[in-house]
Amino acid sequence: MIKKYFKTIGVIALNTFRETIRDRILYSLIGFAALVIAAGLLAGSVSLGQDLRVIESFGLTAMLIFLLIITLFVGTQVVWREVERKTIYLTLTKPVTRDQFYLGKYFGICLTTATSALIMGAMFLLEIYFKAHIFSVPALFSIIWMIFEVWLLTALGLMLSTFTAPLSSAIYTFCLALIGHASTSIWQIAQKSPAALKYILDVIYYLFPNLEKFNLRNEVVYAINPPFSQVWTTVVYFIGYTALLLVLGLMAFRSDEF
């Protein structure tokens, strides 16, 4: 029974994955990302011997930007598109619960972002390998962390898209991604602020997803591995926050009518 429950989620996830993969937009995005990552070589060559650090920071930041674009434009639309194109009738009229459908969509998008990240990541690691003849473990770590980040943001976008239009959902998700990456600055500003403002900023800091936890890109440049205590707390944070967003999204989605 439980096996069948998850099998159905898997069928929907694979179908979602196939849908996004067969979408040509994704190919062009990944192609463009490859170009940008390769452009790091060019930028590195004019950096007075700082090639590696330039290639690493440019490549990783480019990857994050492209993963965010995929998340914002595919992740926030995926449920809305089903409703808009009425394909949701095909799935939901079968022995499929709302929960299975929602989770299937979520994991399908996760599969898409992970695949894109792995393709881009492989190109990136190869680039580093050919440049410096090293296999950069911190870079691999930071790519995995990046995947966690976009998975969390996918859950966020999906949740927002259950009660707003896809464009607003994309904009909100984008804003929350910006806030999430400004968390270090927000905390620093909060420390210097008067009590009332500090209270507001503290709420923002603790309530919104703290995406700087998933940022190992600055450490990669110095080949620093994250300390183990940080690794597992980040994983726990990721699982907890994502599960919370999924539950909230499910609660909204269960009462949606089509």
Partner: peptide
Amino acid sequence: FMSENPHFYDH
């Protein structure tokens, strides 16, 4: 089940 004006996945 068969819905009115059925739609399918384009891909």
